[in-house]
Amino acid sequence: MTSREHLRYLAYLGAFLVFLAVLPFQIGVYYRSFVMFTMMWVVLALSWNIISGYTGYISFGHVVFYGVGSYASAILVADHGWPWIPTLLVGAVVGLAVAILIGYPVLRLKGPYFAIAMLGAAEGTRVLVTVWDSLTHGGLGINLPNVENSMETYFAMLALMVVTILVSYWVGHSRFGIRLNAIREDELAAEALGVNTTLYKMAAFSLSAVFPAIAGGIQANKTLYINPDGEFLLLITITMTLMTMFGGKGTVIGPIVGAILLYLFQEVVWVKFPFFHLIMFGAFLILVARFMPRGIVGLFIARGWARKGMVH
């Protein structure tokens, strides 16, 4: 890709940003938080995409980073009186630490074994958080001081989303990303062709952990109440998975589009049918995995509207 193309995409992003920066002043609290949560899902889907889309290590437990991030932030704000913004950084560090702790053993597992071990890691962390009540208040959850911060959380999430998009863009257009793809396609061949797979997987995993941890922190300060079952909800992982698969895994635009469409649909239409919508979620995942493995982006490629591959 030429640098002109990079500039064009940056210009799109810039225009999008200006729109999102002006928007919150034009809308009320309800829609402001609605857009905030849409941006959060963009962050989560893009993050899941880095490890699972590019590297092919399907994580069924990615909510764990979101959960520990939100807990780190909530504990510091509620129990130690910190202002909430610096707690996000602590959340990021905790997310990173958990990623290394989990990733070091679990990334050696392949295919389904990694997926299920991640499922176990997330559930296990939920249990630990529930049990360790001296730190986390256990199953009761944590109440945060009640403040109106829809504007602050909006901009925090916007900033996070921009960073996530830029990092994803870099991953998606660099030799780093290509090498992650190579790991997905054939780990042994990748290793023989110069990729230090252990290091690359760890790097991808860490990157994909940091953003959800921060997003979790912002979310905790917006919803003002968290508990283990809510923060380590399997459904959050499923949603990340589905959004990314639906939009197109292993691309930058795919998870963004997938997250926005699915969140809109979820909030506008499906929320009227609470259980039915989750049944549809499962059915939808089946359909996407079975019939459109490359997602919406794949449909565009098939029609010749988009080019194959990520680097040109």
Partner: peptide, 8 residues
């Protein structure tokens, strides 16, 4: 996906 659909 099958599992999620069944749960719900």
């Amino acid at each position: 996906g099958v599992g999620i659909a069944m749960i719900n």
